[in-house]
Simulated assay, not measured.
Amino acid sequence: MKSYLCETQLLDYKQSVIEDLIDSRQWRQIESSQELISEVYNFVRNEIKFGYNRGDALTASEILGDGLGQCNTKNILLRGVGVPCRIQGFTIDKTMQKGALTGVTYRLAPKKIIHAYTEVFYNQEWLALEGVIVDDQLLSQTKSHLSDQGDKLLGYGVSVKKSDGFNTCFYGKSTYIQFASVIDHLGTYNSPDELFQQYSNNRLKFKMWIFNTFMRRRINTNLQKIRDYGVRYSIKLVATNFQKYKR
C-alpha cells in the first residue's frame, strides 16, 4: 500500500495550505475510517465546487486555492490523511457536459474527454469515489432539467443510469455521477501524475489558450448563477438544445 500513500508532484499534501486545512478540520483525530473518508469526501464535493480549471495536471494545493474543479482535479486530499488512493482513467462522451459547456465552448471540446476518478482502499476493497465531482447545490438545481436519453439522464456534468439514481453520498460504498457516459477504460494508476503523463485534454495548446482566455471564467460564472438562481438563468437549457449538440 506504500505506493498509494506517497506524496507526488500533483498530490502535494505536505504543502502548508493542505496541512493547515487537515489540522483545522481535525481529520487526523477521526478514528473511524468510514467517517474520515466521508468527511474529506464531503469537503471536496461541496466546498471545492464543480467547475473548470486552467488544466488537468494541477497540484492539490492549486485546486484548493481555486476552490473549484472537475473530474480530473477534484480527487486530491485523501492521501494527506493516510487513506490509500489510486486513480482510474477513462474516456467519456462529452454530451454529459452540455449545459455546463455551451455554444462554441461545447463544440471545441473533443468528443471523447479524458476522465478520471479516485478509488480508496476501504474494508479490504477498492471503492470508486466518482460521486465527488458535482456539488450538491449544482445537482439540486439541475437534476430535474437533465436530458432523458432512455436508460439514463445527462447534462451539466451529470450522467447517471435511471436504475441507479443519484448516488453521491459516501456510506462505505462506491459513488458515481458521470459513469453512465464512460466509453473506454485507460487503466489503473498509482497517481494522477502517471495518468496525465500519458493522457491529457490539454494537448491542443491553441484551443486551451482560447478556452482559458475567453471562456473559462464565463463558464464558471454561469455555473454559479445556476447554483444561486436555477437553470432558467443559465445560457442554454440541456433538454431543449440537446439534439442540436449531440453530434
Rank of each mutant, 00 (worst) to 15 (best):
K2E: 07
E7V: 08
K14Q: 15
E19K: 15
L21Q: 11
L21P: 10
R28Q: 12
E31D: 13
S33G: 01
Q34M: 12
Y41Q: 08
F43S: 06
V44K: 02
R45E: 00
Y52H: 05
L58P: 05
T59Y: 04
A60N: 10
A60G: 15
S61Q: 06
I63R: 08
G65W: 05
G69F: 11
Q70S: 09
T73Y: 09
L78K: 06
R86E: 00
I87D: 03
T91R: 05
K94A: 04
A100F: 04
L101I: 02
L101T: 02
T102C: 09
T105M: 06
R107V: 00
R107D: 03
K111N: 14
I113R: 08
I114C: 09
H115L: 05
H115G: 09
T118E: 15
W126A: 11
A128Y: 04
E130N: 15
E130L: 03
D151N: 14
G155M: 08
G155S: 08
G157P: 08
S163I: 06
S163D: 10
D164P: 00
D164I: 07
D164G: 01
G165L: 10
C169H: 11
C169A: 13
F179M: 05
I183E: 15
H185W: 05
T188V: 13
T188R: 13
N190V: 07
N190Q: 13
S191N: 06
E194V: 12
L195F: 10
Q198A: 14
Q198D: 12
Y199E: 08
Y199F: 15
S200Y: 07
L204K: 12
L204F: 12
K205D: 05
K207C: 07
K207R: 15
M208D: 10
N212S: 09
F214V: 05
R218N: 11
R218G: 07
N222M: 14
R227M: 03
D228E: 15
Y229K: 07
V231N: 05
R232S: 12
K236H: 04
A239V: 13
A239E: 13
A239I: 08
T240N: 14
T240Y: 03
F242M: 07
Q243L: 10
K244E: 01
K244T: 04
K244D: 00
